[in-house]
């Protein structure tokens, strides 16, 4: 019973935070609301006895990915975009009409189907008897899911190289360097120079 009440609380906060993300015009507010949503989703994971995933959710999503977003948000000067129109003009009304219909359809299908349990023997009690969620999850990750694990490392490598390649300055055409202005002697000026 307590679990159900907590689930409803976490779910309500997560949905409210998500609604805030897509309606606020200030990106930093959206970012903080996104962290709020992710932490509530981590609470849902805890209620589901997925302890390791709850920790990873906070660590990777609310930690690493959001810090990356925050870094780029502060790196670019985004204050000028707050005054602009935030929504697509015609598309906004189509989305406002169609999104609840899509939601109602999904909820109708989900509640109409009866979901049978396969029951593979990894109930929370059985997992606790075998040494806990982290141990059993890790054992499966390095036996059953070893090939996907290696492919994931490849994806991370490609992501890293791609990010560096895309964000690096194209210094073949033009390079921005700091040069001393000879006329007044002290003021440094940014000069765009062909190389």
């Amino acid at each position: 019973m307590v679990e159900k009440i907590l689930f409803i609380v976490f779910a309500a906060f997560a949905v409210a935070g998500a609604l805030g993300v897509i309606t606020r015009s200030n990106i930093v507010h959206g970012l903080i609301l996104l962290v709020f949503t992710f932490i509530n989703v981590a609470g849902i994971f805890l209620l589901t006895q997925a302890h390791f995933l709850a920790v990873i959710q906070v660590l990777v999503y609310a930690g690493a990915i959001l810090v990356l977003f925050a870094f780029v948000v502060m790196f670019l000067n985004l204050r000028e975009f707050q005054q602009e129109e935030q929504f697509h003009r015609g598309q906004k009304w189509a989305v406002i009409v169609l999104a609840p219909i899509m939601l109602a359809e999904i909820i109708f299908v989900v509640t109409a189907v009866t979901w049978a349990s396969v029951n593979d023997g990894f109930s929370p009690e059985a997992i606790a008897a075998q040494g806990g969620n982290v141990k059993v999850l890790g054992e499966q990750l390095f036996t059953k899911m070893l090939l996907p694990f290696e492919v994931a490392s490849l994806i991370l490598l490609v992501g890293m190289v791609g990010a560096i390649l895309l964000a690096a300055k194209e210094d073949r055409e033009s390079v921005c360097l700091r040069e001393w202005d000879d006329d007044d002697g002290v003021t440094p000026s940014l000069v765009e120079r062909e190389v």
Binding site: F52, Q57, I127, L137, A163, I164, A167
Partner: peptide
């Protein structure tokens, strides 16, 4: 994963998070 009482679903979430991290890095670039 909780309904079927196995851990493949939870393992798969780890890979989803990996892809999300790579996607965020490339998206921001």
């Amino acid at each position: 994963s909780r309904l079927h009482e196995n851990l493949i679903g939870q393992n798969f979430v780890l890979f989803t998070m990996t892809v999300a991290a790579a996607e965020a890095a490339i998206g921001l670039a």
